[in-house]
Amino acid sequence: MMPATSKVPASRPHRFQARSLPIAEWPAADRDAWIAACRPSQRLVRGGAGAHMKPITLSDLARRYGYFLDFLDRSGLFDRRRPAAGNVTPENVAGYLNELQTRVSSVTVYGSIYKLRRASELLDPHSEFFWLTEIEKDLALMMRPRSKADRFVLSEVLVENGLTLMAEADHSTTCSDLAKARQFRNGLMVAMLALHPIRLKNFAGLEIGRNFVNIEGRWWIILGAAETKEKRPDERRLDDMLAPMLEKYLSNYLDVLAQESESNALWLSSADGHPMTYSAVADAIKRTTSTAIGVGVSSHMFRTAAASSAAVHAGHNPYLASALLHHRDPRVTEEHYNRASSLSAAKKFARIIRRDRDC
């Protein structure tokens, strides 16, 4: 007998905590199909349908599919006897979509359905999900990205606050050694990401001696083509402004954070000394900027800040931001230049107002 279908009450999304159903709790058909799809390629042996994808991408798709299964489980729509991706039906997706629209932004709604479709195609490559693609297209037309105005900070402000946090930690006489090390690490993260706005997955995964190396007394971030989204090598020398702070971090604070653990990771957790995860680095950066600046700046907003600062201070060099962010197409940064132009105009207007008041 098929499980009874029931609508989720409109008020329910406000009373529950959505979770992503772990792969271990997926129906057997889904679980087996996902493992097969993620099977890496080997010599003379073709991998699964997702073998060409990066682990972080596969993990994200599995997480989004897990949210869909969780909705079905809570709604009494979950049929564990169906084949792989068999629960991805127009009726089930319609219910899931209705719930999403009551609790998340239009951008997240679109992303959730888009990634549900991609995960479904990996689970069942032989089925057609064109109807899901049509839903995506409709959602894309309705997307209204949240304004970044309340989170917009120029790079020089981020660098200055990062340097201040490190100086305060270094001169503190009241904090414990571990608290000082944590604050110094967070300040270095903020200043370093502001000056070198690489993508967070690369920033969080920096390892001393592998992709963060000392060459003739200078520290370099060296990312191979396989590590970057653009599939091109990315090499950046650490700015001289940060060199003494990095040396102090490596010599005075890294061992404090490491405690008894051994790792080459640049960013270590103050809780157990293990390498910080992608999420932990993102959370630390956002919490730190929220405390120091009053604005919780996400790691991605550091890239927005870099493009906008380049436009404000070097508008004569239109491709600076594209090079800084490692974009292939300079048009990607156009929106940042438009925002920066507005900022520059506002500053000029304010100077005119002050001058007129002084007359």
Rank of each mutant, 00 (worst) to 15 (best):
E160T: 05
E160V: 00
E160D: 12
E160H: 10
N161W: 11
N161G: 08
G162T: 08
G162P: 07
L163K: 06
T164L: 14
T164Q: 12
T164P: 00
T164W: 09
L165P: 03
L165I: 08
L165V: 04
M166L: 08
M166G: 01
M166E: 04
A167K: 11
E168P: 00
D170R: 10
H171V: 05
S172D: 15
S172C: 12
S172N: 10
S172Y: 12
T173L: 14
T173G: 00
T174Q: 14
C175D: 15
C175R: 14
S176C: 07
D177F: 11
D177M: 12
D177V: 07
D177H: 12
D177K: 12
L178E: 09
A179R: 11
A179W: 11
K180W: 12
K180Q: 15
K180M: 15
A181Y: 12
A181I: 02
A181G: 04
R182I: 03
R182K: 12
R182H: 13
R182C: 06
R182L: 12
R182Y: 09
R182D: 14
F184T: 07
F184G: 02
F184E: 04
F184Q: 03
F184L: 04
F184P: 00
R185V: 01
R185I: 03
R185W: 09
N186H: 10
G187Q: 04
G187W: 03
L188Y: 13
L188I: 01
L188F: 15
L188P: 00
M189T: 02
M189E: 06
M189D: 08
M189G: 02
M189H: 00
V190M: 05
V190A: 03
V190E: 03
A191D: 03
A191Y: 02
A191M: 08
A191N: 02
